[in-house]
Design a protein around this nucleic acid. Structure first.
Length: 396
DNA sequence: CGGAGAGGACTGTCCGCTCT
DNA sequence: AGAGCGGACAGTCCTCTCCG
């Protein structure tokens, strides 16, 4: 499909419309507050993009595979050749984990075909070719593992910003058919914690993502979430943020494409793929429930460290108070709430030093916590509390 | 928010090629 | 001949997405 004369006319008409109706120059200057919701319009467009992509998807069903599938197939094929020739992928030789597609600027210099602009970076994780790797990886049963080919699908998608990338790894097998010293038959992914654990720590730390069941999320995104979720930015808004940046990246690439076509005087070039066209650019930002799940799992896994850190904080100047607001989000027993309040203890740096759910506002139920905190201060060589602020002092 | 269904990631296993 | 390895594929699991 191409940009038709009709499309161009419609676009010009819309631009004219803005010029004619922007009497205060709001759109141009951005000074004025705009009350009409722009969001509805955006969502409408998204929907129409989606239906458009579906139509295009159905129309192009004859294609052997999507652009990204073909890219990965090509990468793997080349990778095997490189390993054969140089004993390692060329990206390793270059000092890089990533097999990178050409930047649009250079890709467009050679050809005005958009396909390469949909390609993503591919993170190559081949544990047996990494510096510091053991001569053979061991199975959980102790027997040596052998390599066992690659995966299908070839690589998994890692959700990231400004765009997703792929993670390519190989498989290991504890071969049961080995005559001399037969293995247990278990197989591993190169990304398995058991394999990672056999690499030196500095190599382990280079692993760039947290793996989930069907996908993965880059450590960068995870760390951004940890920072933003601790203030008021929640998973829904964060999902929106990632999505926005990914759409933006797509739009910037499209702009480069169109502008290059213009520069090289190429007319009637192929239309750039829609963001979510599965056969084209195939963008798919992470959903809110996915991010929410990730965050909860991460927090659960690291809770012991957080608790330990909190227990080591000082409480030289203390302030304590009850909170009620978020209790309505906690579960109950047969519809009856178990707790009526939460009690929070903060130190002079506004760090939470103690926190517990309480059945009533009585201070007697808090005795155990205060004793625990006192013991904790001693154990961590902190000063005993010197000053205590509270709003309803009681003698207990 | 919850349930249903799709389908992606992975496992288990076999085959055949190459090298020593 | 045995070991190592890549490739293929059926089948399973279970998360993610969609939709009401």
């Amino acid at each position: 499909s191409r940009i038709s004369a009709d499309d161009l006319a419609a676009l010009n008409q819309q631009l004219d419309y803005i010029n004619e109706h922007d009497e205060h120059g709001d759109v141009a200057t951005g000074d004025q507050e705009i009350n009409e919701s722009l969001i509805d319009e955006v969502f409408d467009n998204l929907e129409s993009n989606q239906t458009a992509a579906e139509v295009e998807f159905e129309a192009s069903e004859a294609q052997p595979g999507s652009v990204l599938q073909n890219q990965l197939r090509g990468v793997l094929k080349r990778l095997l050749k490189e390993i054969n020739k140089y004993n390692m992928p060329l990206c390793y030789r270059r000092g890089d984990f990533f097999d990178r597609p050409p930047h649009p600027v250079f890709a467009l210099r050679c050809s005005l075909e958009p396909t390469q602009l949909y390609w993503r970076k591919v993170f190559i994780w081949l544990p047996n070719l990494l510096p510091g790797c053991p001569s053979t990886f061991k199975c959980t049963c102790g027997k040596p593992l052998i390599r066992n080919g690659f995966n299908d699908p070839i690589a998994r998608r890692v959700r990231s910003m400004p765009a997703d990338y792929f993670l390519l790894t190989n498989r290991f097998l504890c071969p049961p058919r080995r005559q001399n010293n037969p293995g247990c038959g278990r197989s591993f992914q190169g990304t398995d914690p058991h394999i990672l654990g056999q690499l030196p720590l500095f190599v382990q730390r280079a692993f760039p993502a947290y793996i989930t069941a069907r996908a993965a999320v880059s450590k960068l995104v995870m760390w951004q979430m940890l920072n933003t979720f601790s203030s008021r930015l929640g998973p829904a808004k964060f999902s929106g943020l990632v999505s926005e940046i990914q759409y933006r990246t797509h739009a910037e690439t499209e702009l480069m494409y169109i502008s290059a076509a213009n520069h090289y005087r190429q007319f009637g070039v192929k239309q750039f793929s829609a963001f979510d066209d599965p056969h084209g650019y195939a963008g798919s930002p992470p959903s809110t429930p996915y991010l929410k799940g990730l965050f909860t799992d991460y927090t659960n896994a690291n809770r012991i460290y957080v608790d330990r850190y909190i227990a080591s904080l000082p409480l030289t100047v203390a302030s304590g108070d009850h909170t009620f607001a978020f209790l309505k989000h906690t579960g109950g027993l047969k519809g009856e709430p178990i707790f009526t309040a939460a009690y929070t203890l903060m130190n002079e740096h506004e760090e939470v030093r103690g926190h517990c759910f309480v059945p009533s506002k009585s201070m007697t139920v808090l005795q155990e916590m205060f004793q625990g905190v006192k013991q904790g201060l001693q154990d961590a060589n902190n000063l005993p509390t010197q000053l205590f602020y509270t709003d309803s002092p009681q003698r207990t």
